[in-house]
Amino acid sequence: MRVIKNKSIIDDEWSLKREIGNTDPIPSGNVILPFPFWQANRDELINSKKCHAIWIDGSIEIETIASDLQYFALIALDFPTFKDGRSYSHARLLRERYDFKGELRAIGDVLQDQLFFMERCGINSFRIRDGKDIEKALESFNVFSVNYQGAADDSVTISQQRKFK
C-alpha cells in the first residue's frame, strides 16, 4: 500500500486496524489502533516500547488524548466522508496548541481536492481513497502559491507579505 508523506509517494510502513475488540490480543507490527483500544491497553502498550499510532474520528475531544501525545509516532485522523470537516480542527489543534511533532495522517474518504486544505491544517501524510489516482493527487499541493490566512503549515500569509506584521 502506498501513501503520500511529505509530498512524496512512499510504501506505507503502517497497517490500519479499523476494528478490534478492547480485550483482543495486541497485534504485532506497526499498527494504527483505534483510540479506545489504546485506552484499554495503555500500560501494556507503553511497556512494549514499540512505536505507537492511533486513529481518531471527529467525535472525540482532542483534550482527551492530549496527555498521551508523547507516545504517538503517528495519529491518523478519520474522514468518514470528505464532507465531515471536524478533523481539520483536530489537526490544527494537535499542531498549533499541543505542538504534536509526529506524523499526522488523513484516512478515510481522502481525495485530491481536499489535500490542500488538509496540508494547511498540519496533516502531512495521506492515505488516498482506494481507486483514486495517487500520482494525480500530488498536484493538489501546487494549486495555490499564496494564502490569505495563517494555519498550521507555517506558510507566510498575504498579510505578512504585505508587511503588516
Binding site: 470537516g85 481539520y88 481536499q114 486544505f117 494547511r120 491544517c121 490569505y148 494555519a151
Partner: peptide, 14 residues
C-alpha cells in the same frame, strides 16, 4: 472576505 477565502479549517462545515 480575505480571511475566509479558502479557509483550510472551515471549508467543510456542517
Amino acid at each position: 472576505r480575505q480571511w475566509s477565502t479558502f479557509h483550510p479549517e472551515f471549508s467543510f462545515l456542517p
